[in-house]
Amino acid sequence: MKAEGLQHILEGCLKNDPRQQRALYEHFAKAMLGICLRYAADRMEAEDVMQMGFIKVFKSLHSYNGGNFQGWIKRIFIRESINQYHSRKRKLLDFTEGDDHTYLNVSDGFADAISQLQTAEIMKLLSTLPEGSRIVFNLFAIEGYGHAEIAEILGISEGTSKSQYSRARQLLKDQLSHSLL
């Protein structure tokens, strides 16, 4: 979508114009659902999160003050997904405190190997991960957050974030090795 078109939609949304709100929804729904699917336990939860995310977008649209709108809306959906997870678990992620040093020596061509896979295959692999590890992997490897930021989002220590990523990485590596065999 062109910037002018998006701007027009956003102005309409700020005036609570239902047509423009729907246009915004239709433009971003698929991408945002993809994000939600990565974090949610199942599709139903992902759709719920997406609905809540859009409601939050429309309500907080006045706080958007320019910049990359897709990045802004993406962050809202990620946060909403995390919140949904928190509310579901009613506790912080079931992260087990890991050894910060366990991952430091990892150098095994994992990134290259998993990059060769199709997105759907990666999603399939990710669905096998424990939720805590999966969320950290999503945030680190896909969203590009650093561990410090992930720790802040999830309310965990930075070391825990690193260990969870290391755990996810190891599990994915095992999955890849197993599938190759």
């Binding site: 698929k30 680190f140 969203e143």
Partner: peptide
């Protein structure tokens, strides 16, 4: 190595999307 993996899949998932349900809106 681990630090180099930060966001290494972001490009791959840029186009990743789901199909919303029809009455989602």
């Amino acid at each position: 190595k681990e630090m180099n993996e930060q966001g290494f899949l972001s490009d791959k998932f840029d186009d990743w999307s789901g199909e919303p349900i029809p009455n989602g809106w």
